[in-house]
Protein backbone atom coordinates (compact mmCIF):
# COMPACT_ATOMS: atom_id res chain seq x y z
CA UNK A 1 0.00 0.00 0.00
CA UNK A 2 1.40 3.31 -0.98
CA UNK A 3 1.17 6.16 1.40
CA UNK A 4 -1.72 8.43 0.63
CA UNK A 5 0.11 11.42 1.94
CA UNK A 6 3.81 11.88 2.10
CA UNK A 7 5.12 12.71 5.57
CA UNK A 8 6.46 15.90 4.01
CA UNK A 9 3.00 17.46 3.94
CA UNK A 10 2.89 17.57 7.71
CA UNK A 11 6.31 19.21 7.74
CA UNK A 12 5.19 21.71 5.15
CA UNK A 13 2.12 22.61 7.16
CA UNK A 14 4.13 23.18 10.29
CA UNK A 15 6.74 25.17 8.41
CA UNK A 16 4.04 27.49 7.13
CA UNK A 17 2.55 28.04 10.54
CA UNK A 18 5.93 29.41 11.55
CA UNK A 19 5.26 32.42 9.46
CA UNK A 20 6.21 32.13 5.81
CA UNK A 21 3.70 33.46 3.36
CA UNK A 22 2.90 33.88 -0.29
CA UNK A 23 4.97 36.98 -0.73
CA UNK A 24 8.24 35.29 0.16
CA UNK A 25 10.63 34.72 -2.67
CA UNK A 26 10.66 31.06 -3.57
CA UNK A 27 12.90 29.47 -6.14
CA UNK A 28 11.57 27.16 -8.83
CA UNK A 29 13.08 24.26 -6.87
CA UNK A 30 11.36 25.43 -3.66
CA UNK A 31 8.03 25.54 -5.47
CA UNK A 32 8.46 22.07 -6.95
CA UNK A 33 9.33 20.74 -3.50
CA UNK A 34 6.31 22.41 -1.92
CA UNK A 35 3.99 21.08 -4.60
CA UNK A 36 5.40 17.58 -4.23
CA UNK A 37 4.76 17.68 -0.50
CA UNK A 38 1.29 19.26 -0.75
CA UNK A 39 -0.10 16.89 -3.35
CA UNK A 40 -1.43 13.53 -2.25
CA UNK A 41 -0.09 10.23 -3.45
CA UNK A 42 -2.32 7.67 -5.04
CA UNK A 43 -3.53 4.19 -4.17
CA UNK A 44 -3.42 0.97 -6.20
CA UNK A 45 -7.19 1.34 -6.61
CA UNK A 46 -6.65 4.71 -8.30
CA UNK A 47 -4.14 3.32 -10.77
CA UNK A 48 -6.35 0.30 -11.47
CA UNK A 49 -9.31 2.57 -12.16
CA UNK A 50 -7.33 4.68 -14.60
CA UNK A 51 -5.88 1.67 -16.41
CA UNK A 52 -9.26 -0.05 -16.69
CA UNK A 53 -11.14 3.03 -17.82
CA UNK A 54 -8.85 3.58 -20.81
CA UNK A 55 -9.99 0.54 -22.83
CA UNK A 56 -13.55 1.18 -21.65
CA UNK A 57 -13.42 4.70 -23.08
CA UNK A 58 -11.53 3.52 -26.15
CA UNK A 59 -14.31 1.11 -27.06
CA UNK A 60 -16.92 3.85 -26.62
CA UNK A 61 -14.90 6.13 -28.91
CA UNK A 62 -14.75 3.33 -31.50
CA UNK A 63 -18.47 2.71 -31.82
CA UNK A 64 -19.59 6.30 -31.17
CA UNK A 65 -17.37 7.08 -34.15
CA UNK A 66 -19.66 5.04 -36.39
CA UNK A 67 -22.64 7.38 -36.03
CA UNK A 68 -22.08 9.27 -39.26
CA UNK A 69 -21.00 6.36 -41.46
CA UNK A 70 -23.90 4.26 -40.15
CA UNK A 71 -26.47 6.95 -40.93
CA UNK A 72 -27.51 7.67 -37.37
CA UNK A 73 -30.14 10.37 -36.84
CA UNK A 74 -28.81 13.94 -36.79
CA UNK A 75 -29.43 14.24 -33.05
CA UNK A 76 -27.49 11.08 -32.32
CA UNK A 77 -24.67 12.18 -34.62
CA UNK A 78 -24.27 15.39 -32.62
CA UNK A 79 -24.43 13.49 -29.36
CA UNK A 80 -21.78 11.03 -30.57
CA UNK A 81 -19.50 13.73 -31.97
CA UNK A 82 -19.42 15.42 -28.60
CA UNK A 83 -18.92 12.14 -26.77
CA UNK A 84 -15.99 11.15 -28.97
CA UNK A 85 -14.25 14.45 -28.19
CA UNK A 86 -14.98 14.08 -24.48
CA UNK A 87 -13.79 10.52 -24.07
CA UNK A 88 -10.73 10.96 -26.30
CA UNK A 89 -9.66 13.87 -24.11
CA UNK A 90 -10.15 11.81 -20.98
CA UNK A 91 -8.07 8.98 -22.46
CA UNK A 92 -5.22 11.45 -22.99
CA UNK A 93 -5.60 12.63 -19.40
CA UNK A 94 -5.62 9.10 -17.99
CA UNK A 95 -2.68 7.90 -20.06
CA UNK A 96 -0.60 10.94 -19.13
CA UNK A 97 -1.40 10.45 -15.47
CA UNK A 98 -0.31 6.81 -15.56
CA UNK A 99 2.83 7.42 -17.61
CA UNK A 100 3.95 10.27 -15.36
CA UNK A 101 3.75 7.84 -12.45
CA UNK A 102 5.54 5.04 -14.23
CA UNK A 103 2.39 2.96 -14.23
CA UNK A 104 1.58 0.89 -17.30
CA UNK A 105 -0.84 2.71 -19.62
CA UNK A 106 -3.10 0.78 -21.99
CA UNK A 107 -3.20 1.98 -25.60
CA UNK A 108 -5.44 4.89 -26.52
CA UNK A 109 -7.07 3.06 -29.42
CA UNK A 110 -9.38 0.13 -28.96
CA UNK A 111 -8.10 -2.91 -30.77
CA UNK A 112 -10.71 -5.37 -31.90
CA UNK A 113 -7.94 -7.78 -32.69
CA UNK A 114 -7.36 -8.33 -29.01
CA UNK A 115 -10.96 -9.38 -28.44
CA UNK A 116 -11.61 -12.25 -30.83
CA UNK A 117 -15.20 -13.28 -31.40
CA UNK A 118 -16.42 -15.67 -28.79
CA UNK A 119 -13.67 -14.78 -26.38
CA UNK A 120 -15.02 -14.03 -22.97
CA UNK A 121 -11.91 -13.01 -21.12
CA UNK A 122 -11.67 -10.06 -18.83
CA UNK A 123 -13.40 -6.90 -19.99
CA UNK A 124 -14.73 -3.95 -18.07
CA UNK A 125 -18.39 -3.69 -17.05
CA UNK A 126 -20.73 -2.67 -19.83
CA UNK A 127 -18.25 -3.25 -22.63
CA UNK A 128 -19.62 -4.79 -25.78
CA UNK A 129 -18.60 -8.25 -26.89
CA UNK A 130 -17.15 -8.66 -30.35
CA UNK A 131 -20.48 -10.16 -31.44
CA UNK A 132 -22.34 -7.10 -30.21
CA UNK A 133 -19.87 -4.81 -31.96
CA UNK A 134 -20.43 -6.73 -35.19
CA UNK A 135 -24.19 -6.52 -34.74
CA UNK A 136 -23.98 -2.76 -34.28
CA UNK A 137 -21.50 -2.38 -37.12
CA UNK A 138 -24.02 -4.03 -39.46
CA UNK A 139 -26.93 -1.80 -38.44
CA UNK A 140 -27.88 1.38 -40.30
CA UNK A 141 -30.23 4.31 -39.75
CA UNK A 142 -32.94 3.90 -37.15
CA UNK A 143 -31.77 0.36 -36.39
CA UNK A 144 -28.33 1.72 -35.60
CA UNK A 145 -29.85 4.41 -33.37
CA UNK A 146 -31.85 1.96 -31.32
CA UNK A 147 -29.06 -0.56 -30.93
CA UNK A 148 -26.48 2.12 -30.22
CA UNK A 149 -28.58 3.73 -27.51
CA UNK A 150 -29.26 0.40 -25.88
CA UNK A 151 -25.60 -0.58 -25.90
CA UNK A 152 -24.20 2.80 -24.94
CA UNK A 153 -26.56 3.11 -21.99
CA UNK A 154 -25.28 -0.24 -20.76
CA UNK A 155 -21.72 0.86 -21.52
CA UNK A 156 -22.17 4.06 -19.50
CA UNK A 157 -23.78 2.17 -16.63
CA UNK A 158 -20.69 0.01 -16.62
CA UNK A 159 -18.53 3.12 -16.27
CA UNK A 160 -20.66 4.27 -13.34
CA UNK A 161 -20.18 0.93 -11.65
CA UNK A 162 -16.42 1.29 -12.15
CA UNK A 163 -16.58 4.62 -10.32
CA UNK A 164 -18.65 2.91 -7.64
CA UNK A 165 -15.98 0.24 -7.35
CA UNK A 166 -13.25 2.88 -7.07
CA UNK A 167 -15.12 4.72 -4.33
CA UNK A 168 -15.75 1.40 -2.60
CA UNK A 169 -12.05 0.45 -2.54
CA UNK A 170 -9.62 1.06 0.31
CA UNK A 171 -7.77 4.27 -0.44
CA UNK A 172 -9.82 4.84 -3.58
CA UNK A 173 -10.17 8.41 -4.91
CA UNK A 174 -8.49 9.97 -1.88
CA UNK A 175 -6.36 11.77 -4.41
CA UNK A 176 -8.13 14.98 -5.46
CA UNK A 177 -7.23 14.60 -9.11
CA UNK A 178 -8.67 11.07 -9.24
CA UNK A 179 -11.74 12.11 -7.26
CA UNK A 180 -12.39 14.99 -9.63
CA UNK A 181 -11.84 13.04 -12.82
CA UNK A 182 -13.97 10.10 -11.67
CA UNK A 183 -16.68 12.40 -10.30
CA UNK A 184 -16.75 14.31 -13.60
CA UNK A 185 -17.18 11.03 -15.46
CA UNK A 186 -19.91 10.00 -13.06
CA UNK A 187 -21.78 13.29 -13.53
CA UNK A 188 -21.31 13.43 -17.32
CA UNK A 189 -22.26 9.85 -17.97
CA UNK A 190 -25.26 9.95 -15.62
CA UNK A 191 -26.47 12.98 -17.58
CA UNK A 192 -25.77 11.28 -20.91
CA UNK A 193 -27.66 8.13 -19.86
CA UNK A 194 -30.70 10.29 -19.22
CA UNK A 195 -30.27 12.04 -22.59
CA UNK A 196 -29.91 8.70 -24.37
CA UNK A 197 -32.95 7.29 -22.60
CA UNK A 198 -34.98 10.27 -23.82
CA UNK A 199 -33.69 9.70 -27.37
CA UNK A 200 -34.54 6.02 -27.14
CA UNK A 201 -38.06 6.95 -26.08
CA UNK A 202 -38.38 8.78 -29.41
CA UNK A 203 -38.68 5.45 -31.16
CA UNK A 204 -42.08 3.84 -30.69
CA UNK A 205 -40.60 0.37 -30.85
CA UNK A 206 -37.47 1.34 -28.94
CA UNK A 207 -36.35 0.51 -25.46
Amino acid sequence: MKRLYSPGLLLAVFAVSLGSCGGAARSAADLEALAARNRQGHSPADARFMANMIPHHAQAVLFAGWAESHQASPALQIFCARMVVAQRDEIVTMRSWLLERDEPAPPAEYSRMRMPAGADHHTMPGMLTEAQLNELDNARGADFDRLFLKYMITHHEGALSMVDELFGSYGGAQNDFIFKLSSDMYADQTTEIEHMQVMLDTYPSGG
Binding site: G22, G23, L34, N38, D176
Partner: peptide, 12 residues
Protein backbone atom coordinates in the same frame (compact mmCIF):
# COMPACT_ATOMS: atom_id res chain seq x y z
CA UNK B 1 -0.98 38.56 -8.86
CA UNK B 2 -0.31 37.03 -5.46
CA UNK B 3 0.85 33.43 -5.43
CA UNK B 4 -0.58 30.98 -2.90
CA UNK B 5 1.04 30.45 0.49
CA UNK B 6 3.41 27.51 0.81
CA UNK B 7 0.92 24.90 2.00
CA UNK B 8 -1.34 25.48 -1.03
CA UNK B 9 1.29 25.51 -3.77
CA UNK B 10 0.48 22.90 -6.38
CA UNK B 11 -3.05 22.36 -5.01
CA UNK B 12 -6.20 23.64 -6.75
Amino acid sequence: NTPPPDEFVGVT
